[in-house]
Design a protein around this nucleic acid. Sequence first.
DNA 1: GTGGTCTAGACCACA
DNA 2: GTGGTCTAGACCACG
Lengths: 129, 129, 129, 129
Amino acid sequence: MNESDSQVFHPESFRIDPSRPLYEQYVEQIRARIACRQLLPGTRLPSVRDFAAVMRINPTTAARTYQELERDHLLETFRGQGTYVTRDTAQIAAARKAIAQAAVRELHEVAESLGLSVRGLLELAEWEE
Amino acid sequence: MNESDSQVFHPESFRIDPSRPLYEQYVEQIRARIACRQLLPGTRLPSVRDFAAVMRINPTTAARTYQELERDHLLETFRGQGTYVTRDTAQIAAARKAIAQAAVRELHEVAESLGLSVRGLLELAEWEE
Amino acid sequence: MNESDSQVFHPESFRIDPSRPLYEQYVEQIRARIACRQLLPGTRLPSVRDFAAVMRINPTTAARTYQELERDHLLETFRGQGTYVTRDTAQIAAARKAIAQAAVRELHEVAESLGLSVRGLLELAEWEE
Amino acid sequence: MNESDSQVFHPESFRIDPSRPLYEQYVEQIRARIACRQLLPGTRLPSVRDFAAVMRINPTTAARTYQELERDHLLETFRGQGTYVTRDTAQIAAARKAIAQAAVRELHEVAESLGLSVRGLLELAEWEE
DNA sequence: GTGGTCTAGACCACA
DNA sequence: GTGGTCTAGACCACG
């Protein structure tokens, strides 16, 4: 683990709810960092073992996290060389949009279940930007 | 189970994902029906046993569903008589607002994780009412 | 049911929590009224049937209420004549004291479970007369 | 179950009334132990299965006990790892105060029902610290 | 009849 | 290993 790696992930920078699956939360938060360009294409991630050590989680949990993100084509692993954020910016843009759409679809479903429009829901929640 | 009861809940009207906790989904959907006034204050719900039979779930699971909603003060239980939608409309209004706020807070967190405002997120998702 | 009877019990004057046994709550509240001299010795109570009708409860619930209070010697029933508050003021005084002692014992047990004295408990609760 | 776990809970140290809900009594008594600092923040509780075995109750009942306390934010559950006393001491202090206030409120209501002040009730019960 | 609780035992996802 | 959920079926108190 070199210095630049250790700068990539700090344990305090992840907000973890112990009652939800850990791997799920790490996936979500790493995905968001890639989508918001906080983690740039080509960035090298810490090894699974280092990630687990830094986060103080089980290595299998760390491995599962990376696997999920690979399946999403947001991470690329080159055997023996390490894991990197994909250089395929189209994939990243697609992920970004998918996250947004999933969030909005969810909001829309909640609104519908209350018999409201999305705008109506925002008003009821007294939301203001 | 009388006719009016059987009109309250149709098994087809619940959308259940078998991979998520059943009681949780029934709670959410009954809560939404109360919050959107589809289930009016004072309405009698089917008995735990009837609900279980209609939904083809275990009575224990049905009971747990009702208990969760009673804890939320959306249902009232009259010993030996049955379970009813609360007549306390303030509780219902509070639940309605809480559902909306939870949804909006969730949206806001996703937006934040992408480095966007809520408005920006809606735009990215190409949402239009 | 004559006029003076109907003045004895008003449904609104009882605070009932539907999730607790009804008979238990009526027993407690009638016992307290006798103990605090709101219901005087010799007062005639409504018949079981009238009590049930006024309170809109099941007659068996009303009967059980009266039975419990008879067992405590706070009510006396003369068959065919009705039910009366006992004229034995010693019984009433004893009940009064028993209620107080039970309440204080309960408080003491809670205090003990928190590792506090009763005085300490009152302070923690920020109680002031 | 290691030795330190088995020291946490002894079956004889719980006073259980079989005529009341078991889970309720375990909840009350564990809550009190947390509130009085007998169970310290971060302490690991026995596993649900061990707790059930030691107390000779069904694992379901044991699980329900832990879940109630988790809902109260007095326990935290780490998936696949176990259940721990919350490290959030504010929650513990709040629970401690809530227990005290509930007890005092109860006392106050009894006093009121007898037409007495709390001080008057304590005198009637001949309570002395 | 109602809901509430408990037991027994199974299966699952997670770490 | 952990806790979470579900099923099946029993018993109880209450109204």
